[in-house]
Nucleic acid binder design. Structure first.
Length: 312
DNA sequence: AAGACGAAAGTGGTTGA
DNA sequence: TCAACAACTTTCGTCTT
């Protein structure tokens, strides 16, 4: 037990490429690096059910727990509901006494459910968040984080005087940053009706007020996404990751657009590994211009002393 | 003909007085 | 609040493959 706790606490880093995200393959019991495919550890704990089910009915019949508690529903999925039918559990009609009692319970139950303005706010915000994050294709656990961010912002009274939508968008964006899922602010802005300025302001506000570390966007995080768009080969991707890593430690990549850095690294890696893409192709997927790719790649070559080999 | 290159001028955002 | 500034973009002519 102790060992399991320790291994959970320690953040795993891929020994091959330094990536920290892993896919757990339960059927094979392996931990696989999402970036380079390295099998990082075998014999992981299968946290799934110990039974098997082939149909939905079987699954429902065998499950012994209810829906998971979640932050993305305003009442955390913990509310009870009282049925509107005047029947008991076995389907018999209720006596008039019981019926009156149930009627009173129902009344208070409904009245107490959305009792505070915060709860009402959350209700609206969570449905908006659900819409936004599904539009952006954001996975479940990141949504939980963004819900948490929103709840923190709400309790700190940061939503007051600002539109719910802008704070929701900021929460989603920050959750992506925290989980190192590359979504740029512009992409989030595009799915909302709020101006970029307002969302940017909300983002900064939350970062300054809420006590959560938000890592800076790194060019490394963009590599998997860009390289799959470019259909690059594994070794090229790995090379690009190395380039960025040494660029980050050797030299300032700060203040530069991560897209430019990532694009330049992929360009160089492509040349070295003979898996070349044109500057235009790379510029398109990394959302910067060819000129920026050029500038960054010249800079990287100069600073890292990479010789673009003349052999071809 | 496509890709790479670099100069010049313009834009949106940050910083410091 | 404003000007200076760095990073990035747009545009365009030229060179290379």
């Amino acid at each position: 037990m102790k060992m399991i706790e320790e291994s959970l606490k320690k953040k795993k880093v891929c020994v091959s490429c330094g990536e920290t995200s892993f896919t757990e393959d339960y059927t094979r019991g392996e931990n696989i690096c999402t970036s380079c495919g390295l099998v990082a550890s075998e014999r992981i704990t299968d946290r799934g059910p110990e039974w098997r089910a082939f149909t939905t009915e079987e699954r429902n019949a065998r499950a012994r727990t209810g829906a998971p508690m979640t932050l993305t529903i305003a009442d955390r999925g913990l509310s009870t509901t009282i049925d509107w039918r005047n029947k008991d559990a076995s389907g018999r009609a209720l006596t008039s006494n019981t019926r009156a009692a149930i009627y009173r319970m129902r009344k208070w139950h409904i009245r107490s459910r959305l009792h505070s303005s915060q709860h009402r706010n959350l209700g609206i915000a969570m449905s908006e968040m659900e819409r936004l994050s599904s539009q952006l294709g954001i996975p479940r656990d990141v949504r939980e984080t963004s819900a948490l961010m929103y709840r923190k912002a709400l309790t700190k009274k940061l939503v007051r005087g600002r539109s719910i939508e802008s704070v929701v968008a900021a929460s989603v964006y920050l959750a992506c940053r925290i989980h190192r899922i590359p979504r740029r602010l512009d992409e989030v802005v595009a799915e909302t009706n709020v101006s970029r300025k307002q969302i940017g302001y909300a983002v900064r506000l939350i970062v300054s007020q809420v006590n959560i570390d938000v890592p800076l966007a790194s060019a490394k995080d963009l590599i998997p996404r860009l390289s799959s768009d470019l259909f690059l080969e594994g070794r090229t991707v790995q090379k690009a990751t190395e380039i960025i890593k040494s660029a980050e430690e050797k030299f300032v990549t700060t203040g530069k657009d991560p897209g430019g850095i990532a694009g330049a690294a992929l360009y160089i890696a492509g040349i070295i590994e003979k898996d070349r893409r044109t500057q235009r192709e790379i510029a398109n997927v990394s959302r910067v211009t060819e000129v920026t790719i050029r500038n960054r790649y010249k800079e990287l070559v100069r600073v890292l002393g990479i010789s673009i080999s003349v052999d071809s």
